[in-house]
Write a protein that binds this DNA or RNA. Structure first.
Length: 506
RNA sequence: GGGUCGCUAGCUCAGCGGUAGAGCAUUCGGCUUUUAACCGACUGGUCCUGAGUUCGAAUCUCAGGCGACCCA
């Protein structure tokens, strides 16, 4: 039967429900238990035994097995499922005063996908299924559209992303992923709160997109007649708060980067940035370990996990290695020994590093070598430390290593998962570095930052030594939920519109 | 941006040049211990869109749309 006919059949049932005095779109229902609570509480009830205790449940009908005078429905709520044992004699006994044909109504007017409430006692069937032995049922919401195949479920990836609600209804593991995501962010916030950090919300609409190298989304404010940019990082505003006297601040929120889409990139994604006055990047490394191992322990109960069949040990301490040493180990080339760019380029080419013709400094060459030869090999959590100054415009110069900064990035399963510096607090140095960025931007680099003059002004009032940390929440959730694609941890990932009207022939 | 693969009934899929199919769901009939219930009967299609090749296209070719994965 075609989709429209299936829907029409159910709309017909709406009218029938109304005609017998049952509202197909009810106002309220009070359950006594969730499905999981009942399953846990009565786990020891023997087969064939009934407990005379009145319970009320509500949920969506996932399967129906209907006999002449008996029916079994599987009812699903957020926590799980329970079977309804629907016996004609019993239902007629308790409902026939209001609904003379209650059992026939149940058989004829309910469908898979409907949301119903049921009251009754508890009984474990002879076959061992804990069931609500129903006295009364009530239609709560009539569903007009058919659910996917009860056995094969929904596998079409396009529908799963475009109509996530269907995916959530029929795939319990998808609900579990988003439940875990909420637990992970709650764990992080709880830890920071206990440690004296406060969360302050900073602007999403900004007149200058700074704090990272990324192309921003541009939008427009009508009454102010000005272009605005969606934030690409929360960094520069959170640092202003440190200047203002807050000593431990963070923001967990959405940022936007106008870039490509892949299994690791969505144009809007979630980061947490944390800033702590009087701390440096060593303190931030410790905080990173603590936040992630705490979340893993609280949500998964362990720091020994499996990601896509690879064992990952999140148990701290994690490996720490400088970028120079990591590249040297992977390629045999020690870029720290070079003083001449051409010499370094020759060595890089000899080591098989490609696309280096526009590397204008040894530091960029080192970074290119790192990205090509090291990054994907960092499966176990690893802190890569001491990045070149050329690629770290907001990081403080290393206290003992010229040309490098006090910066680290955390890699897990070959992906950048966190980024942190001893924050640059020298306003004169900061201005020079941002002006170099602005020159690149003027030359056409769409990912380069401009100079945020007010941010420089804030630094001139004086920012205490500060450690800053950013963690990519989506990538962290991927690791902790064993999700292969970032779209699996974003409830409503960005997809192209289907544009059906454009395909209609003239 | 490049490559590979996919798009057929509400869902899951088969069909790969000769009348568009199956299972589940739906509809109707039967059934008081099922759990992919079962038995019987019926119904259901823009084969992603457009153009081309052909006597004939879901099938072959080209262009486009959407999506997945890999690479840059």
């Amino acid at each position: 039967m075609a989709s429209e006919d299936l829907r029409a059949t159910r709309i017909e049932k709406l009218d029938q429900l109304r005609s017998i005095g049952m509202n197909p779109f009810a106002y309220q229902w009070k359950s006594t238990h969730s499905m999981a609570e009942l399953q846990a509480k009565y786990v020891d009830l023997p087969n064939g035994e009934e407990i005379v205790v009145d319970v009320a449940v509500a949920g969506r009908i996932m399967t129906r097995r209907v006999f002449g005078k008996l029916a079994f429905f599987t009812l699903q709520d957020e926590t799980g499922t329970i079977q309804l044992y629907l016996d004609k004699n019993r239902i007629q006994e308790f409902m026939s005063d209001r609904f003379p044909e209650a059992f026939a109504n149940l058989k004829q007017l309910t469908d898979m996908g409907d949301i119903i409430g049921a009251k009754g006692t508890l009984k474990r069937t002879d076959k061992g299924e804990l069931s609500v032995y129903v006295k009364e049922f009530e239609m709560l919401t009539k569903s007009l559209l058919p659910l996917p195949d009860k056995f094969h479920g929904l596998t079409d990836i396009t529908t799963r992303y475009r109509q996530r609600y269907i995916d959530l209804i029929v795939n319990p593991e998808v609900r579990e992923t988003f439940r875990r995501r909420a637990l992970i962010t709650a764990s992080i916030r709880r830890y920071l709160d206990r440690d004296g950090f406060i969360e302050i919300e900073t602007p999403t609409l900004t007149s200058e997109a700074g704090g990272a190298d990324a192309r921003p989304f541009v939008t427009y404010h009508n009454t102010m007649d000005m272009e605005l940019y969606l934030r690409i990082a929360t960094e520069l505003h959170l640092k202003r708060l440190i200047v203002g006297g807050f000593e431990k601040v963070f923001e967990l929120g959405r940022i936007f980067r106008n870039e490509g889409i892949s299994t690791r990139h969505n144009p809007e994604f979630t980061s947490i940035e944390v800033y702590q006055a009087y701390a440096d990047y060593n303190d931030m490394m410790a905080l990173t370990e603590t936040l992630i191992t705490t979340a893993a322990t609280e949500v998964l109960g362990t720091t020994e996990i499996t990601y896509q069949e690879t064992p990952i040990s999140l148990t701290s301490p994690w490996k720490r290695i400088t970028m120079h040493d990591a590249v040297k180990d992977a390629t045999g080339v020690d870029f720290a020994t070079f003083t001449d760019l051409n010499q370094a380029i020759a060595a890089a080419k000899a080591a098989g590093i490609h696309n280096i013709d526009d590397c204008s400094s040894i530091g960029k060459l080192l970074n290119e070598a790192f990205e090509q030869k090291v990054e994907t090999t960092l499966i176990q959590p690893t802190f890569i430390t001491d990045y070149p100054v050329e690629i770290s415009p907001l990081a403080k110069p290393h206290r003992s290593k010229p040309g490098l900064t006090e910066r680290f990035e955390l890699f897990i399963v070959g992906r950048e998962t966190a980024n942190s510096f001893s924050e640059l607090t020298d306003p004169l140095d900061q201005r020079e570095r941002l002006e170099a960025q602005a020159a690149r931007k003027a030359a056409g680099d769409l990912e380069a930052q401009g100079v945020d003059e007010d941010f420089i002004t804030a630094l001139e009032y004086g920012m205490p030594p500060t450690g800053g940390l950013g963690i990519g929440i989506d990538r962290l959730v991927m690791v902790l939920t064993d999700a292969p694609s970032i779209r699996d941890v974003i409830a409503f990932p960005l997809l192209k519109s289907e544009k059906n009207e454009d395909q209609t022939p003239e």
